[in-house]
Design a protein around this nucleic acid. Sequence first.
DNA 1: AGTTTGTCTATAGAATAAGTAGACAAATAA
DNA 2: TTATTTGTCTACTTATTCTATAGACAAACT
Lengths: 146, 146
Amino acid sequence: MLSKKAKYALKALLYLTKKADNGLVLISEIATQERIPRKFLEAILVDLKTQGVLQSTRGKNGGYTLAKNPSQISIGNIIRMIDGPLAAIPCVSHLYYRKCDECLDEETCEIRLVMKKVRDATAAILDTTYLSDLQKITVLLNEDPV
Amino acid sequence: MLSKKAKYALKALLYLTKKADNGLVLISEIATQERIPRKFLEAILVDLKTQGVLQSTRGKNGGYTLAKNPSQISIGNIIRMIDGPLAAIPCVSHLYYRKCDECLDEETCEIRLVMKKVRDATAAILDTTYLSDLQKITVLLNEDPV
DNA sequence: AGTTTGTCTATAGAATAAGTAGACAAATAA
DNA sequence: TTATTTGTCTACTTATTCTATAGACAAACT
């Protein structure tokens, strides 16, 4: 399961993608619009800033904005930043590989084989879907039929 | 992440698949061979029995065995029995559907769209892979080259 | 100097995961 | 019938992670 934290991160980034041309956006605006607990969101945004996807300024007229082009921020990486590995078991993760505790022989582990397939299928989707792609979808859905 | 419980369940079922022709298998044998805490495994097996994939008898010469053909028990359903939905967010689950708390409009939710793709890709793999398929893999790997 | 807005540190409460203990019930065997 | 073996049930405990909140602090602007 995706944590609420990761979901909030995605919502916030999507919101900032929408508002990308309007300059800085207040934490409290994002919180209200996306129904995210303010203080919780605060921590998430600081995290995303540290990871390099967000920029911020303090004081009057301050706020948050994307630090990169939305076409360079993949959904896969956002989830990794917050929740860690996409893989369901550590031994098939690419970036967070870890041996499973009880596993005797990784090479012949059947569970590993299926889970690797699942991880690869998941990564194939999430690592090729960017904020900009999702943004387009909303734009399309919001367009009034001619 | 797959819970340890689900992983233990898979390991136990795979072990029983291997031993399917040898009649009943003791909990303690599975626990030792697969390095699973005995008491914890006990609870898992009772669970799997309730769900209809295992049979058991008590007393001398008792133990556990599969209640169905390994070609009828999919990895997807085993995981569902123990961990619940395969989907990363409740609103894209088929069997455990639930509206997301903060979601204003499910129809236009971009996160939902990507996560649905991921869920479908995952289910496509896990619901078409059966214990018998994984069993074959081990058999192949264990065969000595001619 | 005052106001606005993000930042940092600490903590708390709830839920879930992981594991343990011990009495109990059924099947078999002596 | 009694003893032994093996699964079952109930109740905890412990640890970890998730979700969220409070409040002091720091920078930017007016």
